[in-house]
Amino acid sequence: MAWNEPGGNSQDPWGSGNNKGGGKNQGPPDLDDAFRKLQDKLNSMFGGGKSGGSSGGNNDSGSFSGMFIGIIVLAIVAYLWNAVYTVDEKERAVILRFGVYTETVGPGLHMYFPPIESKYQEKVTELRTYNLRQQMLTEDENIVEVSMSVQYNIDDVQKYVLNVAKPLMSLEQATQSALRHVVGSSEMYQVLTQGREVMGQEVRKRLQDYQDNYGTGLRIGKVNIESAQPPKEVQAAFDDVIRAREDEQRAKNKAEAYANKVIPEARGKAQRTIEEANAYRDETVARAEGEAERFTKLLTEYHRAPDVTRERLYIDTVQTVLSNTSKVLVDVKGGNNMMYLPLDRLTQGKSSMPSGQSTDLSSQDLSDISNRVAEELNKRVNSARSSGRVGR
């Protein structure tokens, strides 16, 4: 039964005794008095006398024993304080017992027992960066100064702690080796211009292979080739070379763009010419076949009615010829001169119509022109006849 429960003996473990006043005047316990009583009890357990004894030797012995017990208690408290540890979410801890791997501890509150056990706590999710800047020799025996950064984190904390004594030093040396191998197998202009991204990927792959072979437990996230430039002593000459290469590439791009523009146009024109030739061929063949068919049919009609067909052919021919000329000469029967009909003058009023209006002659216009031609013919015939009478 607890000392402060109802029905208990009301014995205060801190040595304050029974509170006869009902607890009204009870205050905080006296720490010095409590420590003194604890010391007396420990002295009695180890054979020492009380601190308030009359013997001086027993008093000295009790004080020494109490001090020794206090030291032991403080040592135990300090031991427990150091044995308890906390692992964050981004951390992992490796526990070794007598130097042998025991377990990998995850996030939370844990405890280990040194020196029997040892603890190695590392941040596994934190992305770290290692920077490198060195001069290296390329495949074509040119010196370039390369600056790059390596981003990495701990992938396997057990390998990181146990396999390699100094994994970060191994990472630095492996980075230099991988970079020298890649730069040494590339030409200078590739390193200085368009080959940086490819070179970064090759360095990352080779560096990750090194780490896997060494068993460092590191994972290479990304390798950035920040800059690649020649030494300062020959910087101007290298800049001229780079500008010349850029001009060459620019000229090639312009030529390719012009070729890509001209070649399709030329191919289109050639294809159009071929299509036009095919169309002309088809049209000529079709016209020739049509003319041959028409001539065959016309020959059949000619055999049936030669006079009518001959007259019809003559009229069609005259119509075709006169439709393409603006001057007509008419031979008047019984006259000495040929009569000229200025059809261009007669149709001039019609041809001078405003633009946008149709210039085709309607049937009424043709009728008017025919009437004018007939009137002119009658006048000239009458004039010719009257002049013949006078001559008689």
Rank of each mutant, 00 (worst) to 15 (best):
residue 368 D to E: 11
residue 57 G to K: 08
residue 179 L to T: 10
residue 241 V to D: 01
residue 194 Q to W: 03
residue 153 N to W: 06
residue 165 A to Q: 07
residue 314 Y to H: 05
residue 158 Q to V: 15
residue 175 T to L: 12
residue 269 K to R: 09
residue 148 M to P: 00
residue 98 F to Q: 07
residue 351 S to K: 08
residue 57 G to Q: 07
residue 55 S to P: 02
residue 368 D to F: 10
residue 195 G to I: 14
residue 176 Q to W: 03
residue 373 V to A: 14
residue 55 S to N: 08
residue 189 Y to W: 01
residue 171 L to Y: 04
residue 45 M to C: 02
residue 192 L to E: 01
residue 228 A to S: 09
residue 152 Y to C: 09
residue 335 G to Y: 05
residue 279 A to H: 02
residue 8 G to Y: 13
residue 340 Y to S: 08
residue 387 S to R: 05
residue 315 I to G: 02
residue 36 R to K: 11
residue 133 R to W: 03
residue 101 Y to S: 07
residue 36 R to W: 04
residue 6 P to H: 12
residue 108 G to W: 12
residue 52 G to H: 06
residue 235 Q to D: 04
residue 279 A to Y: 06
residue 276 E to A: 10
residue 203 V to A: 12
residue 302 Y to W: 00
residue 34 A to E: 09
residue 83 A to E: 03
residue 51 S to V: 01
residue 361 L to H: 01
residue 183 V to A: 09
residue 335 G to P: 00
residue 126 E to I: 13
residue 173 Q to R: 09
residue 65 S to L: 13
residue 224 N to Q: 06
residue 253 N to W: 00
residue 192 L to A: 04
residue 390 V to D: 08
residue 376 E to H: 02
residue 186 S to H: 01
residue 366 L to H: 02
residue 307 D to F: 07
residue 75 A to L: 13
residue 82 N to Y: 07
residue 307 D to E: 10
residue 139 E to H: 00
residue 222 K to Y: 10
residue 302 Y to F: 08
residue 277 A to D: 07
residue 381 V to C: 05
residue 28 P to H: 09
residue 139 E to T: 00
residue 320 T to S: 13
residue 208 Q to P: 09
residue 125 T to E: 11
residue 20 K to I: 15
residue 351 S to A: 12
residue 362 S to G: 12
residue 246 E to C: 01
residue 46 F to N: 10
residue 209 D to Y: 15
residue 319 Q to M: 14
residue 388 G to V: 03
residue 179 L to C: 07
residue 84 V to Q: 05
residue 35 F to L: 13
residue 311 E to H: 00
residue 21 G to L: 15
residue 231 P to L: 13
residue 43 N to H: 07
residue 244 A to K: 02
residue 336 N to T: 08
residue 78 A to S: 05
residue 385 R to V: 09
residue 21 G to V: 15
residue 364 Q to I: 14
residue 365 D to A: 06
residue 289 E to F: 03
residue 230 P to F: 13
residue 131 N to A: 13
residue 326 S to W: 11
residue 284 T to I: 12
residue 340 Y to N: 02
residue 345 R to F: 14
residue 343 L to C: 08
residue 135 Q to W: 04
residue 208 Q to H: 12
residue 95 I to F: 11
residue 237 A to C: 04
residue 263 I to A: 01
residue 291 E to S: 03
residue 120 Y to F: 15
residue 9 N to I: 15
residue 360 D to K: 12
residue 353 M to Q: 11
residue 215 G to D: 11
residue 263 I to M: 03
residue 377 L to D: 00
residue 110 H to R: 13
residue 363 S to C: 06
residue 75 A to E: 03
residue 317 T to A: 11
residue 7 G to T: 14
residue 72 I to W: 04
residue 283 E to W: 07
residue 230 P to R: 07
residue 369 I to S: 04
residue 387 S to I: 05
residue 387 S to L: 13
residue 43 N to K: 10
residue 227 S to A: 14
residue 180 R to W: 02
residue 15 G to E: 07
residue 152 Y to A: 07
residue 72 I to E: 04
residue 32 D to S: 10
residue 106 G to W: 14
residue 168 L to A: 12
residue 237 A to S: 09
residue 163 N to G: 05
residue 217 G to Y: 13
residue 391 G to Q: 06
residue 141 E to F: 05
residue 369 I to Y: 04
residue 248 E to F: 00
residue 179 L to W: 00
residue 384 A to S: 05
residue 1 M to R: 07
residue 177 S to G: 02
residue 101 Y to G: 09
residue 309 T to A: 02
residue 225 I to T: 00
residue 362 S to W: 01
residue 208 Q to S: 12
